[in-house]
Design a protein around this nucleic acid. Structure first.
Length: 155
DNA sequence: CAGGTGATTACG
DNA sequence: GTAATCACCTGC
């Protein structure tokens, strides 16, 4: 019964939202699932992808603007054993939104929670902007050319 | 490369 | 009610 705490340093994210992002869950109707996207910045938005994967977003931006940042990948800083317990002993444990959600033990019940006080928390510090590479988003079928994916440069 | 998986959405 | 879509992962 060790410590269940898992800490991951984000190295890959994608932005979704804006008033007219066809790939965003906030594009079109405001529904039960995407409701947390309209919550204040610093809220967690979780959705089930392809019936299997829990993917987690950080709500950002101004009040009433449904913008979110999808957490796509990171490095395990703490709790590797706990992650392997959940994910198995794969070589690539946290390189993908579904894997990341599983590694962190996130499910839909955490959607809408506060990232400062809730079960999933965001902490600093941020990396230097100079080490961030910008590319197209992955795994979507609309607005595929929008360069809204941000990855830490390998080196 | 293909298939699994089920919530969610649009339509009527 | 039904059907289509999906911000993905794993194992051939």
């Amino acid at each position: 019964m060790g410590n269940d705490r898992v800490a991951i340093r984000l190295t890959e994210v994608e932005a979704y939202g804006g008033r007219s992002d066809p790939a965003s869950h906030a594009y079109g109707a405001r529904t039960g699932r995407n409701e947390p996207m309209w919550a204040p910045a610093g809220t967690l938005y979780v959705y089930l992808s392809y019936g299997i994967h829990w993917c987690a977003n950080i709500v950002v931006g101004g009040v009433g603007e449904p913008n979110a940042v999808l957490m796509r990948g990171g490095d395990i800083v703490e709790g590797r054993a706990a992650v392997e317990r959940r994910r198995g002993r794969s070589a690539q444990l946290t390189n993908g939104p579904g894997k990341l959600g599983q590694a962190l033990g996130i499910t839909g019940s955490a959607s809408g929670s506060d990232l400062w006080t809730g079960p999933v928390r965001l902490e600093g510090p941020l990396s230097s902007v100079a080490s961030i590479e910008r590319t197209q988003r992955i795994g979507i079928s609309k607005a595929v050319d929008w360069p809204w994916r941000f990855v830490e440069r390998a080196d």
